[in-house]
């Protein structure tokens, strides 16, 4: 690596010049990130704001922007909430399994497999959800419609293809499971050993130890993990677009043939045939989605930051 070329005589200032250049490079990389994020906002706004005020037929079947994006937002939140309700118990269970319950030989492979699950591309999840999972869920949904039809969620009539918002929610749940698991697992594993041992030494069972030592410590971490999972579910496109044939409706019925669309899936499926006017509408809905996920993520970080402050002293 060092050859014997007699170049660059040794003087001391170059060290500072090199330092200045390198520090400048590093700093400008940070500034690029600031600029990129500003650009995201600016360009989306420039292209999207005209979309708020287009001829009525652009918003078909509705007639103006607010109801249009409102219904999509409803669908987005609805599908994401279904996903959360399904995913959170499983995710916390697996996280506890890895951190406190699994035999040592099982814990590491399970953690690894969960990480792999996170790596499966969303389009593959969508494909699997639409072609493999949905047909299997037809009978389940029919059963739900028959026996639990009095609950608005299962009012039916049950779809015969299984391509419902419930199926989409299940697929979303499987997709956000890894992120919630990964974060809560870290938090569970960080519970001070002393607290745990104190609980056990008082004669607590394993579950009591978890309730009294682990959960209080991890509560805010769990909240933020769930919020991050929610953020992921809100922004997910493919899984929903492939599973649902959706229309902008507002309904709580999870198992029928008419399903609410989400912002992201609506963009993906209407994008190809969009006129420039429609395109600006879609970009505007994208901006709304960005703002909404941003708010959710921001709330999550705020919760974490507050708890970090609480535990640091």
């Amino acid at each position: 690596m060092t050859t014997t070329h007699e170049t660059e005589p040794e003087v001391s200032p170059p060290s500072q010049r090199g330092d200045r250049i390198f520090a400048g490079l590093a700093k400008s990389a940070g500034l690029v990130i600031l600029a990129a994020l500003a650009a995201v906002f600016i360009f989306l706004a420039v292209e999207g704001i005209p979309g708020v005020n287009q001829p009525a037929e652009t918003y078909a079947p509705l007639s103006s922007f607010l109801p249009y994006v409102g219904r999509l937002l409803f669908g987005t939140v609805f599908a994401a909430l279904i996903a959360l309700v399904i995913a959170v118990p499983f995710a916390l269970g697996i996280a506890l399994f890895i951190s406190h319950y699994a035999p040592r030989v099982l814990a590491a492979p399970v953690a690894y497999v969960v990480d792999l699950l996170a790596a499966v591309p969303s389009v593959v999840f969508g494909l699997w959800g639409a072609r493999a999972l949905a047909p299997q869920l037809v009978s389940v949904q029919a059963w739900l419609g028959e026996h639990l039809g009095f609950i608005p969620f299962f009012a039916g009539p049950a779809s015969v293809t299984g391509k419902t918002v419930l199926t989409a929610g299940v697929v979303l749940a499987i997709m956000i499971l890894p992120i919630i698991t990964a974060i809560s697992r870290e938090i569970f594993a960080q519970t001070p050993r002393l607290h745990e041992e104190a609980a056990l030494a008082l004669g607590a069972t394993r579950w009591e130890m978890i309730r009294y030592a682990v959960f209080p410590y991890a509560r805010s971490g769990i909240v933020s993990a769930v919020m991050l999972g929610l953020g992921r579910a809100l922004g997910e496109t493919m899984a929903v677009a492939l599973v649902l044939s959706a229309s902008p409706v507002v309904t709580l019925n999870m198992i029928s043939n008419t399903n609410p669309a989400t912002i992201a899936s609506n963009i993906a499926s209407s994008f190809a045939e969009a006129t420039p006017a429609k395109l600006s509408v879609l970009i505007a809905t994208g901006l709304v989605l960005f703002a909404f996920t941003f708010a959710v993520n921001f709330a999550a970080r705020a919760v974490v930051a507050r708890s970090e402050r609480k535990f640091s002293r």
Binding site: A36, L287, F294, N297
Partner: peptide
């Protein structure tokens, strides 16, 4: 802002 970026939905 890097945190914010992590949360950008891919379609956005």
């Amino acid at each position: 802002l890097v945190d914010v970026m992590t949360g950008i939905p891919s379609i956005v």
